[in-house]
Design a protein around this nucleic acid. Structure first.
Lengths: 221, 221
DNA sequence: TTCCAAATGTAAGCTAGCTTACATTTAAAG
DNA sequence: CTTTAAATGTAAGCTAGCTTACATTTGGAA
């Protein structure tokens, strides 16, 4: 499902990206980041929205005890910093490059809003995009409220399959090449890292899936 | 904090409400609902945003096991159904009147979006409003992830104080007259009802607060 | 005024999942 | 090719908070 949205987003934001227009390119550039580089920090002024051209970006924040909390890890074609459109003034999270060669295209909020005003179709797509993010949050909250850790893992894997999965032509398994560590996943679904690991191995034991460092295979039933 | 927004919302949506214009009033009316009446159900087409003129509205949904889950209870001046603006097609929750005399002002999404296009200030306020709702969700999620039940109760009471509280001139206590039952609150903060009750009585025992059916007093320190 | 259904109060017993601690494996950097 | 920090695997012990069950109180309906 989110796959469908993802594609629509690409249409929208691909069309949007100002680097396609020559005049803009003269003034601005894609921004490049190395591994671990921060694109923005918590508390930074929220003046731009970013489209990922290449690489991986981690969004998260630091809890009072200093522990890093992961909100999401996004890749090529995905958008982040969108709360700036909704009047956020300072960032409530950091954005950090995970790859040695991450490229993002920054779009000033003002430009975004101007486009939304002048192009009804575009604005509706942005609304839908924001609505999706909203629902995703609500879904996470509901899972946290009512589902046990194993169920949350399975739901997370389903989402992951939408974003990164493809069907293995030989086995029919869904192969997911993803950028998450077990620590990240644990943080996202609200369990401890050891618990997540145990669950993953249980699911492997019952042949629900197989996994290695950066690949998960959901077995066909 | 949310109080400030609340007031701004009133400005915006007060100015917006089409019943102020005579022509509109001839065609549409405020909608009245009795106790327990549903304003919309889950799965209903999401074509309108609603402003509460009077009374109380409960938003929630039913879990698979049939248990009711409360998302929020809103009162005069507050807005709901706003996901319709963000391209939601069918409701993911129900809206139910809690008072014998609840009045709401429905605003079609199309009209809303037209206004947003034609009035930049208005659209920015709507964006900010949506951003607030977004942050509220994120805050709830973070609390659920990292805080124990007692902390969540206290945070909830702080929010409640913003929405319904006033300072008692004699004692200096913050008095909160609210529409929630303990069951509602438990559902909102993600605990069981017995646990919430125990916590409330513990907080009463340590003189942090006092409470009866529909009033909570946060004691001055 | 009485009655009833909903709301609130309370306790016992159980368990999912946390914390902590440590071992093992892996991949990236020099 | 070695080194090393990060990632992953595993287990023991503990506890917050759940479930269940029941008692008591309360406000509104009749």
């Amino acid at each position: 499902m989110s796959k469908i949205w993802f594609l629509e987003d690409v249409n929208v934001f691909g069309a949007l990206c100002p680097h396609k227009t020559k005049r803009y390119r003269e003034r601005n550039h894609f921004c490049q980041y190395g591994k671990q580089d921060y694109i923005y920090f918590e508390e930074d002024a929220a003046t731009k929205v970013y489209l990922i051209e290449k690489g991986k970006v981690k969004l998260g924040y630091y809890a009072e005890d200093g522990k890093e909390v992961v909100r999401a890890i996004l890749t090529k074609g995905e958008l982040f910093g969108e709360k700036a459109i909704l009047g956020e003034e300072s960032r409530s999270e950091f954005a950090q490059s995970l790859d040695a060669q991450t490229m993002v295209c920054p779009v000033p909020v003002g430009q975004m809003q101007e486009l939304m005003r002048s192009n009804r179709t575009f604005s509706l797509k942005v609304y839908k995009f924001l609505g999706m993010r909203f629902k995703k949050l609500e879904r996470r909250l509901d899972l946290l409220l009512f589902k046990d850790a194993t169920t949350r893992v399975k739901e997370f894997l389903d989402e992951l399959a939408d974003d990164f999965g493809y069907c293995c032509p030989n086995t029919g398994d869904t192969v997911i090449k993803h950028p998450y560590t077990q620590k990240d996943i644990a943080s996202l679904i609200g369990t401890s890292r050891p618990t997540l690991n145990a669950i993953m191995n249980d699911l492997k034991a019952v042949n629900f899936l197989d996994f290695s460092r950066n690949e998960i295979r959901l077995k066909v039933a």
